[in-house]
């Protein structure tokens, strides 16, 4: 039963992954990404990490890909044909990086087989256990992550604000 679910989810994730890079229109790419993320959530469920699975769907599928779609729709790239590529060096660099990543993965699988797999303790993956370890063992990294996120949000607001020279500010109508 578990194996069947795994095969279906893995096939779905792979199909989505191919779809992300093979789709003509950016919207289709984003949808394929959604497929990948949804299938990853199923994988988390199989690993009995239901909390992570739910968060995966809420954060990635529910928020991040929605933002992607928003940007695509606002740019109104209906045809989605890439305009002139400005960052020409990106393409070769991406090949190299994916090659490195693939070899790292293969190496990890190669060396990892045969060793003992750690058994998960009772209550693994529940909200209680994840929360407990987040707020005791990993408190400092957790708090640092929250500060980093906050910095990111403030930076986004500052970057997204229209630039107004100080001399022109006096003539602007008061903000609503």
């Amino acid at each position: 039963m578990e194996f069947v679910v795994f095969v279906v989810a893995a096939a779905g994730a792979l199909a989505g992954g191919v779809g992300v890079i093979a789709s003509r229109t950016p919207v289709r790419s984003a949808l394929s990404l959604l497929l990948v993320l949804g299938n990853l959530a199923v994988m988390y469920l199989l690993l009995s990490a239901q909390f992570i699975a739910a968060l995966q769907v809420i954060v990635y599928a529910g928020a991040i890909v929605v933002l992607f779609l928003f940007v695509i729709m606002l740019l109104h790239m209906r045809t989605g044909e890439g305009r002139v590529e400005k960052l020409r060096w990106q393409r070769p660099v991406s090949y190299v990086l994916s090659g490195v990543f693939l070899s790292a993965l293969l190496w990890a699988i190669w060396t990892g087989t045969g060793t003992q797999v750690a058994t998960s303790p009772a209550g693994f993956g529940t909200v209680e256990s994840v929360g407990r370890s987040l707020f005791t063992t990993f408190l400092l990294p957790f708090e640092i992550a929250s500060v980093v996120l906050l910095v990111g949000i403030i930076a986004a607001v500052v970057v997204g604000r229209p630039v107004v020279p100080p001399s022109a500010r006096a003539h602007l109508p008061p903000p609503e």
Binding site: F51, A54, L55, V57, I58, A61, G62, A63, V66
Partner: peptide, 11 residues
């Protein structure tokens, strides 16, 4: 959380 996840996918 599942309820929230489903509603966020509904968007």
């Amino acid at each position: 959380l599942i309820v929230l996840a489903a509603s966020s996918v509904g968007v």
